[in-house]
């Protein structure tokens, strides 16, 4: 592999930014979409024993937030491991 240190770092940074942005898209859709902008249409949908938008606004969004932070930590661990492997390959050459 003919990558300079800078290219590897750029690769890591790009992966990192993509991950953050995709998680934040979910964050925005759930919080601002599901619970606020589309709250009125979703109010007519029953979910469990309450309306869907009420559930999202009071519980669902919080559950999604927990998952987002967990996924971030897991994916970053994986990315760090891969980055280390690439760095080691570089050394062997």
């Amino acid at each position: 592999m003919k990558q300079t240190l800078n290219e590897k770092q750029r690769w890591y940074w790009k992966k990192n930014i993509t991950l953050i942005l995709s998680l934040l898209v979910v964050w925005a859709i759930v919080a601002f979409g599901g619970a606020i902008l589309f709250a009125e249409p979703l109010y007519h949908v029953r979910f469990l024993n309450v309306t869907l938008s009420y559930w999202i606004a009071h519980q669902g969004a919080i559950l999604v937030f927990i998952c987002l932070i967990l996924i971030y930590a897991l994916r970053m661990d994986k990315l760090d491991k891969k980055y280390k492997e690439i760095m080691n390959e570089g050394k062997m050459e």
């Binding site: 934040l24 964050w27 919080a31 619970a35 937030f65 987002l68």
Partner: peptide
């Protein structure tokens, strides 16, 4: 409050 305070955590 519910979403504002937890969503900021993300």
């Amino acid at each position: 409050y519910l979403m504002g305070w937890t969503g900021g955590y993300v």
